[in-house]
């Protein structure tokens, strides 16, 4: 029972953590809260199926074997994010942060409506990797194989990102730019390369979340990115805006708190679980308004 809860907490928290990282990465270099991130996730979900307004989903890219499907969908997410950067955010780079934020809202609405046109508004059932639903026995507990894979994938993504930030040139440039973009540019760091790189990573992370969501829920819904975007955004705020480690930690914490509340609340209070969860968030922010892990700096972007 408790082991099952642990796996629930880790897999849910892991999804929140990866989604929050996608937001924190862009915030780190551009001081932009990208509210279109949820629609990036939804776009990657629908990229799996053939566009049509029929109720039945026909797998397109989703029918490909995993070794092709996974990199391809990550690439779709990255490409969408880079295009958004070039056509929406680059022309606005010297605009106020508020203008950028509003632009990201607008971009989200545009993507959502494109999906509505292409796929219709009804949620569609689709089955990605159904064989992963079978349970496996771990230390006496029965855990869905998918959950184990999700946790493993999340840890792999986090490790790969950490290694990239620490040991590659673009990673070093991103960390420098997150702290003081102007100074990084004075040292020859190309603003466009760093920002495009951050968007590409963020888009790939959105696509990874999309894959996990589809595999877990078996549903493609135009609105599915919104809910997770909200939680992920809260995680970045609780973690301390711009702190990547903070976003990950807060993502896991929100997942764990959510699972714990679900298990511990009396049955009649469970429908109000989210109210309790967000009350906790408010409490944390009252105690630490700068977030649990304040960022190294919050200098204005470029």
């Amino acid at each position: 029972m408790t082991l099952q809860l642990l796996f629930d907490a880790l897999s849910l928290g892991g999804i929140y953590a990866v989604a929050a990282l996608g937001i924190a990465l862009i915030f780190g270099v551009m001081k932009l809260v990208n509210f279109a991130h949820g629609q990036f996730i939804a776009f990657a979900v629908f990229a799996l199926i053939v566009p049509s307004t029929d109720a039945v989903a026909v797998m397109g890219l989703g029918a490909a074997p995993a070794p092709i499907l996974v990199p391809a969908i990550l690439l779709v997410g990255a490409a969408l994010a880079v295009l958004a950067e070039i056509f929406v955010f680059r022309p606005l780079r010297n605009a106020s942060p508020v203008a950028l934020m509003v632009a990201s809202f607008a971009l989200g609405v545009v993507i959502q409506n494109l999906l509505l046109v292409g796929y219709g508004g009804r949620p569609k059932a689709l089955s990605l990797w159904p064989e992963l639903g079978s349970p496996v026995q771990i230390a006496g507990a029965s855990v869905p194989l998918l959950q184990v894979i999700v946790i493993g994938a999340v840890l792999a993504v986090l490790a790969a990102l950490a290694l990239m930030l620490r040991h590659t040139r673009i990673g070093l440039e991103m960390r420098a730019a997150a702290e003081d973009f102007g100074m990084a540019r004075l040292l020859g760091v190309r603003a466009n390369a760093v920002i495009s790189g951050a968007f590409a990573l963020s888009g790939a992370l959105a696509a990874a979340v999309a894959l996990v969501l589809v595999a877990q829920t078996g549903v493609a819904d135009v609105r599915m990115g919104g809910q997770i975007m909200l939680v992920a955004f809260i995680a970045t705020v609780v973690g301390g805006m711009g702190s990547l480690g903070g976003a990950v930690a807060a993502g896991f914490a929100l997942g764990a708190a959510s699972v714990a509340l679900q298990a511990l609340l009396p049955a009649e209070a469970r429908p109000f679980r989210d109210a309790f969860l967000y009350a906790l968030v408010i409490l944390v922010l009252l105690l630490r308004p700068q977030g649990l892990f304040a960022a190294a700096s919050a200098k204005p972007r470029v």
Binding site: G182, L186, G188
Partner: peptide, 29 residues
């Protein structure tokens, strides 16, 4: 910067969260 100009700015503006060596390597790109 790529044309060969470099700056030690007002207030130094070192990257505090980076190690000393990482600071030195940012401009090598």
């Amino acid at each position: 910067a790529r044309r060969g100009l470099s700056m030690v700015p007002e207030g130094r503006r070192i990257f505090r969260a980076l190690s000393v060596q990482e600071n030195l390597m940012v401009g090598v790109g």
